[in-house]
Nucleic acid binder design. Structure first.
Lengths: 186, 186
DNA sequence: ATCTTCATGTAATAAGTTACATGATTAA
DNA sequence: TTAATCATGTAACTTATTACATGAAGAT
């Protein structure tokens, strides 16, 4: 038995809450785990097959009218595997890919104004995202449960990032005023 | 001319600060950008060749004794390309892969105690990481510049994550004994 | 002597995205 | 009738990791 892939973990976690189709899993991922773990159809559908072969989930045909549909349920073996992962003390992946930050940290080549502009744009970007999430909040709250908690986390996270940029922008403005460093030339 | 790959952006940003070998770039990435953008040798070396072919950087043999070495400098064309990226308003990649959070959000299958245990372990993990970074802080401060700023960001970021877990753990404890609920603020 | 660091690279593999193809159902 | 949503899948591609190979130089 090979190691559980990240996508497998997402799927097992999702079907543990009840039987789901690949489409449903993707839909839920897009409004919940994607804040800390995304997955695409190209990963989900093949992984569903693999997990079924390994006996961790089981698919049952469940067409809605003439529209084909397969819903997958977690098996005892799958529940056990999920539990093993949840309780294993192994170090967990933690990776951030933030192009905005990469830009800012290489922004030494830009003028002071351009740097500020960049920070402000990034701040606005994350603020706009927070707003979008907040608009979805009432609906999510009504539905409750895990996707709601994930949404709240998403809001907190992006709010923090926006705050960081506001802080950095303020610092940058403060750094400009005292003495004139490098005027006119570039 | 195809789009700049993420690794290309990292490399251009690095060599803009001065000529560097692939090994040096990787070393600096590991103590700086890796907090928001990592890169491996398997990406760096091939990308150096590609960037040289496209004329964005230029390599010069610079052996240290009998030890071969190629240092790459940014070209005018490369500087222009870097500048274009830095000032382009295109939306930036922002992706988080946090296995700890994924675990916690699927932890409904665990007991209350196990959930708390998980949160505490994750909190400790990030706290330990912050401590490690803080140990490196004095050296980094002395060197200053961009890697120091990146380190400070890393500290702030992981401190925030650790705080999140502490908050979540407190909430979970509060949810068990209703008396203690709602005294903290946000 | 031997271990670590400096230095460059690649092959195999794994992971992930994107675009596309198909077709039924439902809401406008 | 047209668009959106539900639903499943794959092929081509890009991206990234891992493990390995090679070898010189410096430190213990």
């Amino acid at each position: 038995m090979s190691e559980l892939s990240a996508t497998a973990k997402v799927i097992l976690g999702m079907v543990e809450h009840g039987p789901k189709s690949g489409y449903e899993i993707k839909s839920i991922v897009d409004i919940s785990t994607r804040f800390f773990w995304a997955a695409s159809y190209g990963q989900i559908y093949p992984e569903l097959k693999r997990l079924e072969e390994e006996g961790l989930i089981q698919g049952v045909a469940d067409p809605q009218g003439g529209r084909q549909r397969t819903v997958y349920s977690i098996t005892d073996s799958g529940r056990e595997t999920l539990r093993e992962w949840l309780t294993s003390p192994e170090p967990f992946t933690y990776e951030l890919r933030d192009e905005g930050k990469l830009k800012f940290f290489f922004a030494g080549a830009l003028t002071h104004e351009e740097q500020l502009d960049l920070l402000r744009r990034m701040c606005e970007h994350h603020e706009a995202f927070v707003e979008r999430l907040q608009k979805a909040e009432p609906t999510a709250r009504a539905a409750g449960g895990f996707p709601y908690q994930a949404l709240l986390y998403g809001i907190r996270h992006h709010r923090w990032v926006a705050n960081e940029y506001r802080r950095m922008a303020a610092e940058l403005v403060g750094a400009k005023s005292p003495a004139a460093e490098r005027e006119g030339s570039d």
